[in-house]
Design a protein around this nucleic acid. Sequence first.
DNA 1: AACGCTGTCAACCGCCCTCGG
DNA 2: GCCGAGGGCGGTTGACAGCGT
Length: 280
Amino acid sequence: MGRRPCCQKGEMKKGAWTALEDKILTDYITAYGEGKWRTIPKQTGLKRCGKSCRLRWLNYLRPDIKRGNITPDEEDLIIRLHGLLGNRWSLIAGRLPGRTDNEIKNYWNCCLAKRIRKENNREHIYLPNKVKNTKNPKIPTPGPELEENGHRLVPSPAVAAASLQLLLPLPKDPILNSGSVMNGDIVNDLPTLEDESGNVSSSPLTSRDDLSSHIVAETGTSDIFDSVDFSTFDDFLFKQFDSVIEAGWSSWESFEEADISHFGPVDYAALSYASDQWII
DNA sequence: AACGCTGTCAACCGCCCTCGG
DNA sequence: GCCGAGGGCGGTTGACAGCGT
């Protein structure tokens, strides 16, 4: 049995919203709050799908939406966050107050992606656009060094940050004494996953609980996590990202070459979009 | 003025995840 | 544990405006 569609096709209106529809939706949400999107058409008489109502509100009608062009600062942040997170637009938007995921996605697709590709002229480099499950991307696993145009490429701080999801950086902590990043031995000792074909891959450790339990197993203590308030794992990553930005990437400079060898799979998006931050 | 090309952005589509019964 | 409803998300589409020829 197939899944029931969110609304009956043919009964619902499509296309651009009218000023009257906007007013009806805004008045309703102002009075009753967000949520229960599917009840809105029934309650208001709007001939719009609940999902359409949600989208209209979140992307256009919300009072805190910021209008106008993306500023250079915002653009810089988008590029860095995209290098870190890939196409997880909602997470990126969460770091840009007043901007919506749709707006950032559009801006990236129409402006940034083309421009950066042009600047770097590296069309052959893997881009994450077609990665279906971006929360668990199957990122290819090159070594920490690449040969290109006869130059030896060494991961710079930007590349290290791009690998945060896989490197699992930790807050500065005397136990690990590793600056901002997890001890390489632990990274190398991440648990593995086995798919239906029996292929083994490194665990992405997509939740904070995964990471926490692994750290406790390795270090015998949960002090690292107890001392920091991370409401979500993404916040955890962002706090690390912010700390690196605030420090002007200097917190990455203490790495020895041996540390770099422990870096996990590199996000190629960051390689192509931040080539100026590669040491060639 | 007419046409075509390009950029922009709102909106839709379909997949996925979560949660409650 | 299973299933369906509800909602979130990223990819894509299509309308429209602006610009150049």
